[in-house]
Amino acid sequence: MPNGQFAVVTGASTGIGLELARCCARAGFDLLIAADEPAIETAAGELRVGGAKVVAVQADLSTTEGVDRLYAATEGRAVDALLANAGVGLGHAFFDQDFNRIRRVIDTNITGSVYLIHRVGTDMRQRNAGRILITGSIAGFMPGSFQAVYNGSKAFLDSFAFALREELRGTGVTVTCLMPGATETEFFRRADMMDTSVGTARKDDAAEVAKAGFDAIMSGKGDIVTGIKNKIQSAVANLLPSGVLARQHRKMADPGHGEVVVRFSPRRPGSSPRRRG
């Protein structure tokens, strides 16, 4: 058990990030958690109830200033585990999207993540010790029609994680890529995708996804695709032409397809609504 070790978890106010922080807390890590919303303080309070030592930082990790603020909050303490989970999505057709939101996806998912990993990972390499978890996605395996920028950002992270792991092979620093599929979080609501098939479909449990990712980073595993369905989907994506994958993705992410699912797939009488995310 890593009692007294120190973990940094980003995107930890809700969803997979919060569940990753819970895994770290249960394992005895001291925590520095970050998100770009006030809910990070609520998350910190929940984690402290279980006895964890937690510092929360509200910072916009799409900016270098936000990453610098988070890094400064480590106060020079060696980071034993970095769980780089912060990310945002964006649905609808590329030319219908606001460019400021497009830029935020790129700056959060790619630029901010790479900068944070560079800052913390440089220290780890100097110490020859540390663990890095990067939350990629099976979305990175396929052209994301109606999620083009998001899927592209995840393709970058998936590739980056494997490349970085190879560069660090033989050192005391490990890199793990967590690649979940659609998960029950706030993601789809925030990405304006509740009018799509994937937005309204049943999804994986965030706690189960996080547990798989945490187990993978602690064992030094290179990558983990969560869920049997997602493992099959990722395997198929390696076989099909990109054009076919793009058309398949359209069926999930095109708002027009989502309307059909809602119209012809009502809840059973007496059933409670699912939590969306």
Results as ranks from 00 to 15, higher is better:
residue 10 T to C: 05
residue 188 F to L: 09
residue 69 R to E: 15
residue 210 A to I: 02
residue 204 D to E: 15
residue 94 F to E: 02
residue 31 L to W: 07
residue 46 E to A: 11
residue 124 M to R: 11
residue 83 L to V: 07
residue 229 K to G: 03
residue 63 T to R: 13
residue 115 Y to Q: 04
residue 184 E to R: 13
residue 65 E to C: 01
residue 156 F to I: 11
residue 219 S to Q: 14
residue 246 A to Q: 09
residue 68 D to H: 02
residue 269 P to S: 06
residue 152 G to K: 13
residue 156 F to A: 10
residue 120 V to K: 13
residue 51 G to L: 06
residue 95 F to A: 13
residue 134 I to A: 03
residue 230 N to R: 08
residue 109 N to T: 07
residue 181 G to C: 06
residue 231 K to T: 06
residue 128 N to G: 10
residue 230 N to L: 07
residue 8 V to M: 11
residue 58 Q to I: 04
residue 221 K to L: 04
residue 176 T to R: 08
residue 176 T to M: 08
residue 201 A to F: 05
residue 175 V to E: 14
residue 64 T to H: 05
residue 5 Q to H: 15
residue 242 S to H: 07
residue 38 P to S: 09
residue 263 R to E: 13
residue 184 E to I: 05
residue 5 Q to V: 08
residue 232 I to C: 12
residue 33 I to R: 01
residue 232 I to M: 14
residue 243 G to Y: 07
residue 4 G to F: 11
residue 235 A to F: 13
residue 184 E to A: 12
residue 149 V to F: 04
residue 263 R to I: 00
residue 15 G to N: 07
residue 95 F to I: 14
residue 11 G to I: 09
residue 83 L to P: 02
residue 72 A to P: 03
residue 1 M to T: 12
residue 237 A to F: 09
residue 210 A to P: 05
residue 211 K to N: 10
residue 8 V to R: 04
residue 111 T to C: 01
residue 112 G to F: 06
residue 187 F to Y: 11
residue 103 R to T: 12
residue 259 E to K: 15
residue 86 A to C: 01
residue 230 N to S: 14
residue 181 G to H: 04
residue 79 V to P: 09
residue 266 P to W: 02
residue 257 H to N: 15
residue 238 N to E: 09
residue 147 Q to P: 00
residue 163 A to I: 00
residue 123 D to R: 11
residue 216 A to N: 12
residue 130 G to P: 10
residue 273 P to R: 06
residue 54 V to G: 05
residue 80 D to Y: 07
residue 23 C to Y: 05
residue 1 M to L: 10
residue 175 V to K: 13
residue 25 A to S: 09
residue 75 E to K: 14
residue 16 I to V: 08
residue 265 S to N: 15
residue 151 N to D: 10
residue 151 N to S: 14
residue 258 G to E: 04
residue 27 A to C: 03
residue 263 R to C: 01
residue 228 I to A: 10
residue 269 P to Q: 06
residue 243 G to C: 08
residue 82 L to N: 07
residue 203 K to T: 00
residue 160 F to M: 14
residue 171 T to D: 01
residue 210 A to L: 07
residue 258 G to Q: 08
residue 94 F to H: 10
residue 50 G to V: 02
residue 40 I to R: 09
residue 18 L to G: 03
residue 126 Q to E: 13
residue 106 I to T: 05
residue 61 L to I: 11
residue 131 R to K: 13
residue 146 F to D: 12
residue 259 E to Y: 05
residue 56 A to R: 11
